[in-house]
């Protein structure tokens, strides 16, 4: 059963009305990434400092002299959100210790797209997580470099056409599968790692709150639907997030101290991936045989995940 049933009835009681990420920004209609960011900000509350990588979210929110951010926010470059965040975190820690800022918890948050996380930002992310800064890193994964015009990243799914992995006479688009960065984060002994999706806002917000409570590093990988880059109708954004779960394309789980757990149950009988693929122009070129291959990849990844769910144990046990 979906956790968001009757959402309208109780959401207002559960969710902060305040928006620290304001309207007036320049995101595309139906942008899943900005929706995720809005939910994230609501769940984080005001006591945060955000370090944002170059990318869609930075560009749409900060065209000088305007800003959509009502919380302290810094942008430096594309690949270094985790490093900038490291500096912010270290500063908050030492300034608090020295009595130069008020004595209360302020969480450092880093935000980057999939490019800024899984490709060019991976080194800085690895360094920051390994050093154990008290910081939550959000990867807003729209599965390509959208800000620069839909080029492939290592988070682009198998078979998707992008401007640098186009479908052609001898190509079916992206040739590789998605790099599993949540797993890489678990391998860093990050105590809280999760996947999330704005189509499941309460699950997303619960995870954000959990991550915020960790006194140390935490990582949330947010599936962020992108009508512009996925060539889908902007009205179908939420539906695509749900289909991603219902087909097993993007399962929602969390990993607490190494223990994997599904947080939103998947249907007993998964829907075929074609239900998800057919709503998106980026998969339009796929033949039935190609779709079969995509299905196999999805099954394989899911099997790996479910195995971890069954067998993993908390390293605190």
């Amino acid at each position: 059963m979906s956790i968001v049933q009757n959402f309208d009835l109780f959401a207002h009681k559960l969710v902060d009305k305040r928006e620290s990420f304001c309207s007036g920004h320049r995101a595309c209609q139906g942008c899943g990434e900005v929706l995720a960011l809005r939910h994230i900000c609501k769940a984080l509350g005001d006591d945060i400092v955000v370090a944002n990588a170059t990318g869609c979210m930075e560009i749409i929110s900060s065209n000088y002299p305007h800003t959509a951010w009502e919380v302290p926010w810094i942008h430096v470059a594309f690949e270094n959100a985790a490093a900038v965040g490291s500096g912010v975190e270290a500063a908050l820690k030492v300034l608090r210790r020295k009595g130069r800022i008020p004595d209360r918890d302020v969480k450092t948050v880093a935000v980057a797209g999939d490019g800024g996380t899984v490709d060019i930002g991976l080194q800085a992310l690895s360094g920051a997580m390994e050093r154990g800064h008290n910081m939550t890193f959000f990867c807003l994964d729209n599965e390509a470099y959208m800000n620069t015009g839909i080029q492939r990243s290592s988070a682009t799914p198998f078979g998707a056409a992008t401007t640098t992995s186009p479908a052609g006479k001898v190509s079916m688009g992206q040739k590789t599968g998605k790099k599993n960065v949540p797993e890489i984060m678990v391998a860093h002994n990050v105590p809280y790692v999760a996947t999330a999706c704005p189509s499941y806002p309460l699950d997303l917000m619960n995870k954000v709150e959990k991550a915020k409570r960790v006194q140390g590093p935490s990582y949330i990988h947010v599936f962020s639907m992108c009508p512009t880059g996925w060539r889908s109708a902007s009205s179908e954004t939420i539906k695509l997030g749900r289909l991603a779960l219902e087909t097993g394309v993007f399962p929602l789980y969390e990993v607490e101290n190494g223990k994997y757990r599904l947080t939103v149950e998947m249907p007993e009988k998964l829907r075929p991936v074609s239900d998800y693929l057919k709503l998106q122009g980026r998969f339009r070129h796929l033949t039935p045989a190609d779709i079969e291959k995509v299905q196999e990849k999805v099954n394989q990844e899911l099997k790996k995940l479910l195995h971890k769910v069954e067998t993993s144990k908390s390293w605190l046990e």
Partner: peptide, 15 residues
């Protein structure tokens, strides 16, 4: 790259 980036974050936060 990260040392200068971290300095940006730290300096921005008042350190």
């Amino acid at each position: 790259h990260s040392s200068i980036s971290a300095c940006c974050g730290a300096s921005g936060a008042g350190a």
